[in-house]
Design a binder for these strands. Sequence first.
DNA 1: AATGAATGAGTGTTCATTCAT
DNA 2: TATGAATGAACACTCATTCAT
Lengths: 238, 238, 238, 238
Amino acid sequence: MRSEGASGRHARPAGARAHTAETRSPGHVESLVSDPRLVEERRGQIVRAAVTLFSAQGYYTTTIQQIAREAGVSTGLVYQYFRDKDDVLLLALLLVLDSYEQEIPRRLEGVEHPIERLCTAIRTYCAIVDRWRDATLLTYRSTKSLRANRRTLIMDGEIRTNRIIEACIRACVEAGHIRPVNEQLLAYSHVMFCHAWALKHWALGGRYSLDQYVREGLRILVEPFLTDKGRAQDAIEP
Amino acid sequence: MRSEGASGRHARPAGARAHTAETRSPGHVESLVSDPRLVEERRGQIVRAAVTLFSAQGYYTTTIQQIAREAGVSTGLVYQYFRDKDDVLLLALLLVLDSYEQEIPRRLEGVEHPIERLCTAIRTYCAIVDRWRDATLLTYRSTKSLRANRRTLIMDGEIRTNRIIEACIRACVEAGHIRPVNEQLLAYSHVMFCHAWALKHWALGGRYSLDQYVREGLRILVEPFLTDKGRAQDAIEP
Amino acid sequence: MRSEGASGRHARPAGARAHTAETRSPGHVESLVSDPRLVEERRGQIVRAAVTLFSAQGYYTTTIQQIAREAGVSTGLVYQYFRDKDDVLLLALLLVLDSYEQEIPRRLEGVEHPIERLCTAIRTYCAIVDRWRDATLLTYRSTKSLRANRRTLIMDGEIRTNRIIEACIRACVEAGHIRPVNEQLLAYSHVMFCHAWALKHWALGGRYSLDQYVREGLRILVEPFLTDKGRAQDAIEP
Amino acid sequence: MRSEGASGRHARPAGARAHTAETRSPGHVESLVSDPRLVEERRGQIVRAAVTLFSAQGYYTTTIQQIAREAGVSTGLVYQYFRDKDDVLLLALLLVLDSYEQEIPRRLEGVEHPIERLCTAIRTYCAIVDRWRDATLLTYRSTKSLRANRRTLIMDGEIRTNRIIEACIRACVEAGHIRPVNEQLLAYSHVMFCHAWALKHWALGGRYSLDQYVREGLRILVEPFLTDKGRAQDAIEP
DNA sequence: AATGAATGAGTGTTCATTCAT
DNA sequence: TATGAATGAACACTCATTCAT
């Protein structure tokens, strides 16, 4: 025999079919389905729909039913792959952050000159932000809607991306192309500059093309720090 | 992507003792009460409560009943002074923006030197952000929850604040303290820098005191643009 | 400013409009409404509807909407007077138990002879069970559906009723009308006999009228214990 | 009062590969599988799991998926051997009743003296109830959750068990060990006494060991009815 | 002007049941 | 036969909004 009875449909009965998660790392999202390929596929399907809808309408005004419909699955299915709505948001936000973390390094491959690398990183970051403009806003709107321990995962993701920029800056400094500077804070300025393309697009979008925006930005956030050595090259111009 | 935000759980039934609004300018918030002094007082009472709660818990997780209780009034009274929850949010956000717009100029009074004025503006802006950290986050989280035409009012408010910074920069340039530069974009960088103190406080708060943050920031966002003339003074240090 | 944000509509945000209960005795059911007369009235209205429906259909198959409709109120109103469905069940069960506890003593008033008192108690108990037959079943079906600490309240109620019977028996023993006996266990037998009229009504109802049932029952559960003194009177016959 | 129980969250859509049943006797539980040995085995497997879970958590809070997991089979398989959840409950309850009906006669084998037979029957009944305490509660909690015509089957099972006790009593009466008495009602009292060990275990369990309980019970429910002849023997003591 | 009880549509979540494999 | 992923109707509970007083 078991433990005692429980009441209420919404109170998950003890030890029932509940997702096992929360015992693992908070980022681990357990699924009720076992086939890993299927889990991968369905999760992707649902999270993509969620990113679309959350981006367009926000987290609270998007319903699970809408997400299911957009993903082309039934309502119940969402709950086979996600513990709750919060869980969907978490993966949606991680998807966005991941795309930053994946794509910037990819674009840096083969780029040698430190200054060029820095500028490429910024340019790429802005381009991704431009492509995922609403999704970038979403990270600002909805991260606080996550349960506290999950929020940490989002922050970790952001930190990892920031480090890419920071590393580019450090390389420039070490090679003598950029004068000594608070690298971390400069990196934050660069990141904010990229995010601003989404956050303030209502103001900036009308006045600059993405290219112009990046070019003018580099003039403010990179050029002033160049040493004579750094200035020697035309790296700043694409 | 879909249509935009727009919330409202309950469609307003036709007729009824409704507010007349929507025929006026979108910023005009109609009240059912006529005595202007009372309107002023009650609205302040309610909006202050709303800012507190929205800042702490977010817009969607705050209920009108909570706001009423925090403000020490009845639920129904809120609807005598606001058309709907959206309306409360609008005024809450405007209250925050106003505090920027009011306080920065007040602190600039009597400050003569252009560089000193610019640095004071930034320093003050950061200080306000620090005091209203959650409220600043709120503007990023919740502006999109406003009905589209109201969002414009928020943007207008932001633009006005930006112009203060921009004017400081222009004055520096015109006086030859700062070399020619894209003033608007530099102003945006300054604003983003100030907001970042709230937006990225989880990362920055542990590493910098507010003072350090501002000092280091000025080194990145002001100093590099100083001309020899501008550099002559110690204006950058408080 | 407050604590951090919370997500999920169903996760009650901290310190929100939640019922304060659970800090008091588990039996205390806090209401969101302050006027005590109104609370009394509405609760009665709703609990009566709940008893009817739970009795007829069981706890889990009865919906809050049905209860609200039966009570002639809106769904939401139920939650102004009860914390959750469990809470409604608790009060419903207590209502049934209370009717036992109230009515038996009332009927005993004025009855002097100990044997007559005992028989009246049993007869009355059976009569109430007969009137609330489905409700009596309900206590057996649904007590385990209550949260554990609330279940205690139900047991307390039952114990109090049992004590009434027990006291009648003890009085008989002390007056020498009934020979020494395990009074507690005899009382339980009497109680089970009364409850059996509901529990086994499908078998007994066809064979006995309520009166016959009681008469025959007394022959088995009272008469054998009478002393010569106790048998002297005709108290056992109504 | 309303209509009766009847549950079923999902109305069966017309057509489909449905079980043929409902045309047969209500007790007949049709299976989609033909091999009788397999049917026997699988049903046993599943019903045992169901008894365990229903007993511990109740019918409505136990899900088919839980039962399947506990039984070590797939969800779908349950529906190859049972028409619906109701069906599982029916067999689960019958399994419990059967165990009464099987074991009591088995223990009576070889016991000759009528009084001893009666006491053995009661003692055995209590022992089974003790072993299946939660399951006994289950019959009281959940019988009403069955569709009406199936409930009859449960009643039939109970009646058969009651007849065993009744037969023991009649034998005692016919042999002159027990004085003439309403045999049927006395049998019911005996049955209720046995069931009470489960139903009121929260109150009785702390005060009596099973042995004490039975011994004291016999003193109330058997001894008083013994004739001088019946009293001659020590049959009542084990 | 102010109150706060009342409303009821809307949403997250569950789970009996089906069906392709 | 057996699996388990998929379905979707149903329900507890919330909260913006109204309105009688």
